[in-house]
Simulated scan of single mutants.
Amino acid sequence: MRAVVTDLSVPRYLLTAATRRPGLLLSLRDDLPEPTPPAAPGWVRVRPELAGICGSDVGVARAKSSLVLSAFYTARHQILGHEIVGVTDEGERVVVDPIVSCVHRGFPLCRSCADGFPYVCERFDEPGVTGCRAPSLGFDATLGGGWGESLIAHESQLHPIGDLPSHRAVLAEPASIALHAALHWKRRGDRAVVIGPGPIGLLVIAALRRLHPSLDITAIGPGAFSAPYASKAGADRTLPPGPGVVETLATLHGGRVIRPRLTKIPLLEQGVDVVLDCVGLASTIDLALHVLRPTGLLVLVGAAGKQPVDWSLVWNRQLTVQGTVNFGPEPALGGRHTMTQAVEWLSDPSHPVDDLVTHVYGLPEWRTALTTAAAGPRASAVKVTLRPNPGLPLIT
């Protein structure tokens, strides 16, 4: 089997962290055995049509992942790729929910799984019958991942898609992430800000617009590249990041600008109701806290990391900071699975995602694909994908 394999040995990881050269950790192999199904019922083989490149994949390749979270990702060898549209051995086209929780590992349900939150399972680091030492497919070579010609998934992880176009179907996993994030906000007010109109941010905007048609949505992102995408996704406007955001929002919505001493960013009194930060840098978190109204909500959708942030406004304005990860059964959807809803939206031609897949590469071009995904707008890229099985036709 051909696949791009990650070798997370400590010397390779430390050298990659020092040099940021992904070729030290990743390599294309042609001699791998296909993953073996676990000795349990319900496991099937899937051959990927397309697999997306996520920010977390770039983080792994460049050794920038959170060291704290490494406790949950203990496999030395990984086949990345958890945004997957593929075909089963029976010929059914599916998208894959990559989460591997207690029910898949053969364990009695932990408290999180029993409470309906399998996406934060408390046994993510225990392989069980699967042999998978990671929270999901795409982070352990045992079951495989989307950057290989074959992977193993449980039938409960598969969502049939019929003839849904491949460039829309490959967005099912990030669209589910985005919808899950958007559902954290139980609408209180009329104004939202989404920071970071990359793939996840654009899908968050589309989800907010679908859930709340009358909502005023401001996207915040650098440069001119993202603005047309944000507008098509449903944003009312796109603003460049920085202190000017506060002034502009005050002018638009009639808020007051308050200026602390010796700080660059002023405060927006009568601010926005919710901010979804899809970047997760100290600067974006800080900006979010400065534009939220008292009792507002900040949803951290961006990648995890260690950030020096002044949290004084969380206390002073009684803000709520909500983390979000993965997806699954949604209380806000009556227990319906996020991916079920996402597939339904993606099947609607009016859902504005047609232009998000900007690049498709074959496995031999994985280095170029990673570089393009990491560059984002600098490479005119939104969602970059790999095509592991060129013999499988892409559905248009």
Rank of each mutant, 00 (worst) to 15 (best):
V87G: 05
I285F: 13
R261Y: 14
S312I: 07
P377C: 06
V46F: 10
F124I: 06
A51F: 03
V85T: 14
A172L: 12
I152D: 04
T19M: 02
A369S: 00
L267G: 00
S9D: 15
Y73G: 01
L239W: 04
E122D: 14
V46K: 02
L252E: 07
S176I: 02
D115N: 15
V357M: 08
H290E: 10
R168M: 04
H253D: 12
L392N: 05
P118S: 10
P390A: 12
S214M: 10
L151M: 15
T19W: 06
P48C: 07
N389S: 11
L297I: 11
L363H: 09
L143A: 11
V325H: 14
R188A: 15
D190Y: 10
T338W: 00
H180V: 10
A342W: 00
D236F: 04
P48Q: 12
D115G: 13
L171S: 09
E83P: 02
T36W: 00
Y229M: 06
V4H: 01
T218S: 15
A374G: 07
A51N: 05
H154F: 07
R188G: 11
S70F: 11
G334N: 02
L14S: 05
H104T: 00
V68D: 13
F139C: 05
L281I: 09
I200H: 08
I258P: 02
A227I: 04
R188D: 13
P377N: 11
K383T: 07
F225N: 03
E344L: 11
A227R: 12
T251K: 15
F72K: 13
A178N: 05
G162V: 10
A235T: 08
S312G: 12
G189I: 05
L67R: 15
L211G: 03
P135N: 07
H359N: 14
S65D: 04
L298Y: 02
E126T: 13
H212N: 14
I152N: 00
L67K: 12
L267S: 03
V10S: 09
L356H: 06
W366T: 06
S350P: 08
L319A: 06
I195G: 04
T295E: 14
F327N: 01
Y119L: 02
P393F: 07
L28D: 10
